[in-house]
């Protein structure tokens, strides 16, 4: 008998699989972006099932809210030829298949060695935000102040670059 969390997990996983296949097979670019949105929502759902609601909300906000809007904007404001039906060459096909198989083998290997994350993490317990915050700005083992700061310097550089490009020259 499945537990409630397992049923939720399988439902979300099925959603992710179906929508990722749809996202790469559809011929309209905006539909593809919409299917991608559902894949990202599903990923957020998986985080929520694992009890990592903070990451789930970040996923919703950054990817679903931010990235997709940028995608849609760039699609709306650029000219696109209606369909995206291309002929795929044989060599490309084989390399794609190989990559897929290697990726699948990797996932299978990780699953076989570690088992499902659901079985490791206590179910229905939320990760407290204080813990995440301390991990992000602590300096001890398993704490990530350096990557955090590097990331913020990178974002600052991006912002300055954007302002330099956008500013009026006079």
């Amino acid at each position: 008998m499945f537990s409630l969390f397992e049923i939720a997990f399988y439902a979300v996983a099925l959603c992710i699989i179906v929508f990722s296949v749809l996202a790469v097979t559809t011929s309209s670019i905006l539909r593809s972006a919409t299917y991608l949105l559902f894949v990202l929502l599903g990923t957020g759902g998986i985080y929520a099932i694992l009890g990592y609601t903070f990451l789930s909300a970040v996923q919703l906000m950054v990817y679903a809210g931010g990235i997709i809007v940028l995608y849609v904007f760039s699609i709306l404001l650029t000219r696109s030829s209606g369909t995206m039906k291309y002929k795929i060459r044989r060599g490309k096909m084989i390399s794609v298949l190989l990559t897929t198989l290697v990726g699948m083998a990797l996932v299978m290997f990780i699953l076989a060695t570690n088992g499902f994350a659901l079985n490791i993490i206590p179910q229905g317990v939320e990760l407290p935000v204080e813990k995440i915050g301390n991990a992000l700005i602590g300096t001890e083992k398993y704490q990530f102040v350096l990557p955090f700061e590097v990331m913020s310097v990178l974002l600052l550089a991006c912002m300055i670059g954007a302002i330099m490009i956008a500013r009026k020259r006079n």
Binding site: T53, F54, A57, L60, M61, A64, I68, V72, L76, V129
Partner: peptide, 19 residues
Amino acid sequence: NIGIFFVLAASSIGVLGIL
């Protein structure tokens, strides 16, 4: 336990519907 952050995140989906 991240209630208010979730509210902000969820409300940002609405703009996609509008677009």
